[in-house]
Structures are given as structure tokens and as C-alpha cells.
Amino acid sequence: MQDFTAISNLRLIAIPRLVAGGRWRVEAMRSLSESCLLWFTKGQGRITVQGATRGYTAHNAVFIPPGVMHGFDAGQQVFGTAVFFGRNCDVPLPKEPHHLRIREVHAQQEINVLLDSILREMNSDVPAHDRATRHYLGLLGVWLERQVVRAEPEPVKPDATRRLAARYSKLLEKEYRSGMGVAEFAAALNVTPTHLTRCCKLACGRPASALLQDRRIFEARRLLAETKIPVGHIAASLGYTSPAYFTRAFHHLTGKSPTAFRRAS
């Protein structure tokens, strides 16, 4: 018997469905423990990946490896598909994030056909549908690899500002539960808090403190919506010095208390 672990956690979700549980689920800074491919077919917005913000439009593919902080605008006119590859996916995938503007009509049609084929086989009960799903997933990996090779080079290499924002993003994802503030993050990166904040604003339009708070509050919302962990325990796990401070910070960003948010979720 062949091992199909690679597709056991594969999910294809329409982008509007991702937003159905609250726009915070896609707009807040967060990372995943699996690779993700966002294929936008209609609409436009802005997406922040690893501390750098860019605009996206229809026929843009954004690949995000595990552990990379990101968030994107998803208004009512944005359509497309998010592919979550699962933690155990053994299909070869890029190691770095990529924002690809797919201009060739043939390449646009090709990914649409692949995604439709994967979804059809996943929802089928005909013989060998698991094997067919795995092969189509492999072809999606090949499509992505080829588009990365064909991608138009960036006009300029990331400058020192974007590199610092990316370093901060990586460190923040690793330490956002520690209770560290912007000053401690800046010290760990050998820069001043003022310089770190200025670089974050230039790279993604938001200060370092906002990125930190956004990541912590995203995790708080996720835990409140998906678990029954007491509010005080959530606050402590995210490095807040007291439940009262956590409640104030949560209300400031969401407009609701943690308890009210949990009841509404």
C-alpha cells in the first residue's frame, strides 16, 4: 500500500471562506506551520510578507513557507483559492516566500485546471482518487517551481530597510510570546527602537509596536475562538503582565473584551 501522508492535511479553501470567520483571520499578522499558496483570481489589495508590503491584483500567486509572518487585505471583491499543503507535505516547494505576477494566459489557465482537478479528486470516492490527488499536487509544485524560475526579477534588491523589517518579522514570530517589547527586540537586532520603528513604517506602513501587538492579539483571538482556555491563562501565555493589561490591549485593537469576543465567535 502506498503512503498518502503527504495529502492527509491538504486543504483548498476559497479566499472568501477564509474571511467568513472574521477578516482578522487573514488581515492580522500571523504565521502558519505549513506552506501556503494564495492564488488571487479577482480583486486587489495589499499583502505583507516578512515585513514588506506589496499590492496584489488578479492573477497573482503568493507562496508563503512555514513560519513566515504575513497578512493581507481581503475585501468583498477579492476571490481566489488558498492552498494549505499540510505539515507533512513531501512535495518539493520553495524555501523562500515568492510574490508572482502570472501574466501568461496559459499559465493562468494551467493553475486553474490543476486546482480544479485537485479539488475534484479530493471530493471523489472513485478508485485511486488519493493517488490522483497526490499526482496533481505534485504538478502544482512543478508549476510553482517553473513560475519562480520565470519570474521577472525585482527592480531592486531588498535594501537595508526591508532586510531589517524581515529580520524583525522572523524574530517576532519566534519570540512574540516572550513578553519582549520593541526596545528588547531592537536590542536583539543591534539597532535602536526608533530606527526599527522607522524601517517597519517604510517597509510595510506600520510601526514595530503595531506588528508586535497584531501578532499577539491574533493569537489571542484564535485561542479564544477555538479553545476553552481561560482568559487569564491566554494572557499569561502571550507574555502579558496581567489579565487587566491584556484585556485593555485586546479591547483597544478589537473593540471587544476577550470574554465578549469569545461569546460572539
Rank of each mutant, 00 (worst) to 15 (best):
T5A: 02
S8M: 00
L12D: 03
L12N: 04
P16Q: 10
G21T: 13
E27K: 07
A28S: 15
S33Q: 14
W39R: 00
F40S: 00
G43L: 00
Q44H: 13
G45R: 08
R54D: 09
D73Q: 13
G75C: 08
G75P: 04
Q76M: 01
G80K: 03
F84D: 01
K95T: 09
V105A: 15
S117F: 07
S124V: 02
S124T: 02
D125W: 14
V126D: 09
H129D: 05
E145L: 05
V149K: 15
K157A: 15
S169N: 02
Y176W: 13
R177G: 00
M180K: 12
A183R: 02
A188R: 13
N190V: 13
V191Q: 02
T192P: 02
P193L: 05
T194P: 00
K201H: 10
G205D: 06
S209A: 09
S209H: 11
A210I: 03
L212T: 04
K228A: 15
G232S: 07
H233W: 04
H233D: 12
I234A: 00
Y240M: 01
A244R: 14
Y245A: 15
Y245H: 12
Y245V: 13
F250H: 06
A260I: 01
A260K: 11
R263I: 14
S265A: 15
